[in-house]
Simulated scan of single mutants.
Amino acid sequence: MDGVPKIFMTLFVALTCLSCTKADEANPKPKQSILPLAYHQVSSEGVTLHLISFDSRQYHLEVADQPKGPGSLWPDAKSCGTAKQALASINAGFFTPEGKPLGLVIENGTKRGYNNPSSLGSAFYYIDTNKKITAIARRKHLSNLTKNLTPNHLLQAGPMLSDGGHTVKGLSKQNARKRSFIAHDGADHWLIGYADACTLEQLSKAIAGKKLAGCQISNAMNLDGGRSSDLWISAAVPGGEKTFRSFFNKPVRNFLILKPTP
């Protein structure tokens, strides 16, 4: 007799799950509206942010690397973006004093660098155009994802600034400086960001879980900052034709460029 309730409970759970599945199929989640391409200046938690909103169904980020080192092809984001006929360009990954990438980089299927185990390699951006997958994820998921995907472009950087909409613990409270980052809502809405001087902790609090420029931020990753921070926005972006770059800016190894999706 003790087994009878368990049997009924198992049948009840199975029928409930089947009912939920059919209900989900009958009422699929509505597709997201397209997030317009545009430049925005916003303030969040006392941090001024310069943002470009875009939708990954219409646009995507590609890696533009300089194999011969920083400044060998483009001295700044504007020259890179112009040469690549991009809508916008922002500095990307970290690099060694010798100019080698400090993390894994994939540009048009060509790999350079290595998997960086430090906090500067705790996250990565990737895009697989064949499977139409674009995302930001933690380093621990890298090996599993690359088994199933063939990223056209991949950039390792860090640290994470927002993880599932939550602030990230342990970020530095020191060294307020210009910051560069990218963020998305876990689906199709994306942001390219340039922050006025702030610490990593301040930036995390300013963006994690916030709805900024129409994007409800889930995951966000930090890019190289300080004197490396460099954002150029073309006139083709509504509100654009802008450059955010310090006077003492230094050449960088690579950029992320915004391109229309064919």
Rank of each mutant, 00 (worst) to 15 (best):
F54D: 08
V237Q: 02
K132E: 13
S79Q: 07
I217P: 01
S180M: 07
V63T: 07
V63H: 03
S122C: 08
Y39C: 00
D24R: 11
A38I: 01
P251G: 03
H153N: 15
F124V: 00
I7F: 08
S246C: 04
S229K: 08
K211C: 09
L18W: 12
F244L: 06
G109T: 09
L223C: 01
S180V: 00
A92P: 07
G69W: 02
S228P: 02
H141L: 15
K111Q: 12
F244N: 10
C198I: 05
Q174K: 12
D185Q: 07
S143T: 15
H141F: 14
S180C: 08
N222T: 00
F244P: 06
A137P: 01
G3A: 12
T48I: 13
T21E: 12
W190H: 04
T10K: 06
V63P: 05
L49E: 00
A135S: 15
C198H: 11
G226M: 04
T129D: 13
Q58I: 03
R245P: 01
P97E: 11
L49W: 00
T96W: 14
V105A: 09
L15S: 11
K259Y: 07
S19D: 08
P97C: 05
R177Q: 15
C198A: 14
H184C: 02
L212G: 00
Y114K: 12
D128N: 11
L73P: 04
S122H: 05
L223K: 02
G103F: 06
K259P: 01
P151Y: 05
P70I: 00
K100C: 06
R139A: 13
P28W: 04
G239D: 11
F12N: 10
A176T: 14
N108P: 03
V105T: 09
L61W: 07
N144R: 14
I207G: 05
E62I: 14
A88K: 03
L171C: 05
H40M: 01
S19L: 14
F8V: 09
